[in-house]
Every structure is written in C-alpha cells, then in structure tokens.
Write a protein that binds this DNA or RNA. Structure first.
Lengths: 187, 187
DNA sequence: ACTTTCACTGACTGATTAGTCATTTTTATA
DNA sequence: TATAAAAATGACTAATCAGTCAGTGAAAGT
C-alpha cells in the first residue's frame, strides 16, 4: 500500500464526514491529500470505489481491533465484554471512522457486495453466539437477533456518550450499559 | 397543503431511498410527481430544503402514530410496549419511510436545526422515563441513556425483521425483543 | 368583457465536477 | 550512465443538474 494511497483514504474520510459524499469533490480530496487530481484515479477507479474501499478497510480495522486479546477472555460474558470495551475504545479513539459508519452504513453509496464482504469480517461473533447458546451460557435466541441487538445496544451507548455533556463517568456508563445488556441475555 | 406538494414529497421519498440523494435529480422527482421542474421550487426553496421537510414531516407522522391510544396504557411497561408495537407496525407499513430514516438520519443533508425540531417531537418519551424512574417502575438510569438504548434496541429489532427470511414468527420476535429490553430495565 | 391574480410550466443557463490522457518526473534495471 | 518502466501530474472536457424566469391559461373579481 503506497503512502499516497493512505493519504487519499484519510483525506476522503475527513471530508466525507465533514461535508458528506456529495459535497466533497475528488479535487478537494486530492488537494487535502497533497496529490494531483489524476493520482486519486490511479488508486481508485472511481469516487464510488473510493468510498467502498474506505468502508471495507475501516470495518476490517475495527474487526481486527475487536479480536486483539480476545483469546484471553475465558467465559462468554468476558468475551462479549471484551468486544464491547474494544469497540467503545476504538470508536472514541477514531471519532471520524465512527461517524463515517453512522453516516454511510445505510447510504446508497456502499454496494451490497461491499456490505457482504464486511459482514464476513464479523463472522466470529456469530460463532461465539452459537456456541454460547449451545453451552447454555445465554438464554436461547436466534443468532442474528442477538448480534443485531448487541450491535444496536453498543451503537446506542457510543452515540449517547458522544453527545453526553459529562465525560467524567464515561467508564461507569459503558459498564452499566453492558451490564444491562448482559442482564437481558444471560441464561 | 396542496396535492402537488404531496406528490413531490412522496416521489422524493421513493427516489431518495432507491437511488440516494446525490443520484436523484430534481428533474427526476418532478417527473415522477407529474409536475414541471419549476413547480418543485415553488414549494421548496432548494433540494436541501425538500429533504429536510421530508425528514421533519416523516418524524412527525411517526411521533403522532406512536401516541395514538397511548393514554389507554396504564403502566410504564404497557406504555413502552405500546410505543414499541406502534413503532414496529409503522415501520413495516411504511418501509420507505423507515429506510429513509436509516439512510439519512446521520447524513450531512439533514441540518442540525431540523434534527432539533424533530427531537422535540419525541419529548414525551423523555417525560415518560423521568416519571418511571421517579415512581420506581424501572431501575434508576440517565434519561438520555434509556431513550438511546430503547431506540437502539427497537431499531435493531426492526432491521433484523426486515432482513430475516422467515416472517411467520414475526410477532413472537417483536414480543421477545421487547421482553429482553424490559428484563434489562425493570426495577 | 376586461383586468388582475396566481399556480404552474419547461426551455434554458451558469456552475460544478468526475474522470481522461498526453506529458513529465521518479525509480528500477542493465 | 543509459534505458526502460512505473508513478505521478494537472490542464482539459463532456456531461450533469440545481435553480431561474418569461410566459401561459384558468379562475376570480369588478
């Protein structure tokens, strides 16, 4: 991966979040990245391919971060809590990436193909849930519903934190929200 | 409200959902609505004002629907369940509107002002939560966090249903997801 | 019958911009 | 050092489209 490519991706991320896809010209991205307008099209066939690549790589980064140290968690509870904390941490450390997901996950710019590819990066969470139900750690539930609810709760928590005025009890909120989720799901 | 205005709003909703904001020209909206290109600009100063009006009116319709018959629910549990069912029902009866929210709630097209106005339509939910905590029906929690989690869980449920292959146990899923939420929140 | 009003029309335009490509610069190779 | 290959440049273009405005026709008022 070239360094110029990285600069383009990173400039695109910022500008898309600040001004939206439509109000960000490829010329503006190139300028911010410090490359010529043509260079962008060496690395990405089109503006659409650029945003899809950005989406996929961002998802991949999050997925990787979630799994770091996951093997050290012994119980299902601990594994879910690990994923929870990693996700919150990553989102707070990468506010642009998080905002990017909020803005574009449901937009028309991301193709169905890209979404499929991204979903496969989170396959491991489905496995986790299936095993948890099988071993009786959590109450019986459709895997997809569990994953959806977990993601929803997580997203709601992060969004709440992002717009909440007091960050001092941030950690308590994060833990409390997880406790609530776990309370609803445990066997 | 003129009938042409309605047709423009409704055409815009469909086209925005199908092709996104950027790939929907005002000419296409006008054509689908069966009016001249200039007519759109009689009712909306700009394409941006159009999407903001659409957002606000859709939110208002949902808010109104949620509150229909709400006074008949006696307990906090019943009130929340009423809102839950009304929301799910409305989203399934108005899939375009629901998709529109998913696509544009976090987009750059909806102004902060519009979002503020929309939020005020849901003021009643915050009151509900405050009273519930005060009377001890639910465990103590920050109002904003509760509202955020409720919305997140609801949204996750509807999204799960929308992409789930089997609609036969739809009602069970809806009730189950609410039971899980209530389990996590009740005093 | 004349005038005024006004919702509506649609051809038109000025501005924007995604993407191209002939050329130059840099890097690798012999 | 000479040559080839690869990477990068940026002026340019073809196309799109939001928004305008002079004009139309129907209805209301006098």
């Amino acid at each position: 991966m070239s360094e110029k490519r990285d600069r383009i991706i990173s400039a695109a991320l910022q500008l898309f979040c600040e001004n939206g896809f439509q109000h960000t010209s490829t010329a503006a991205i190139s300028k911010k990245a410090g490359v010529a307008t043509g260079t962008l099209f060496l690395y990405f066939k089109s503006k659409d391919e650029l945003i899809n690549a950005l989406y996929l790589e961002t998802k991949a980064a999050l997925s990787k971060h979630m799994q770091e140290g996951l093997e050290q968690a012994a119980t299902v509870h601990d594994k879910l809590f690990h994923i929870w904390l990693k996700s919150v941490g990553w989102s707070e450390a990468n506010p642009y990436h998080f905002r990017f997901f909020n803005m574009f996950s449901n937009s028309a710019f991301i193709s169905a193909l890209t979404k499929d590819e991204a979903a496969s990066l989170f396959q491991f969470t489905e496995e986790l849930v299936k095993n948890a139900v099988a071993e009786g750690s959590i109450a019986p539930i459709e895997t997809g519903l569990f994953v959806s609810l977990f993601g929803g709760q997580l997203n709601a928590t992060i969004n709440y934190l992002a717009q909440s005025p007091q960050p001092e009890n941030r950690q308590q909120i994060v833990e409390k929200a997880f406790r609530l989720f776990w309370k609803s799901m445990k066997a």
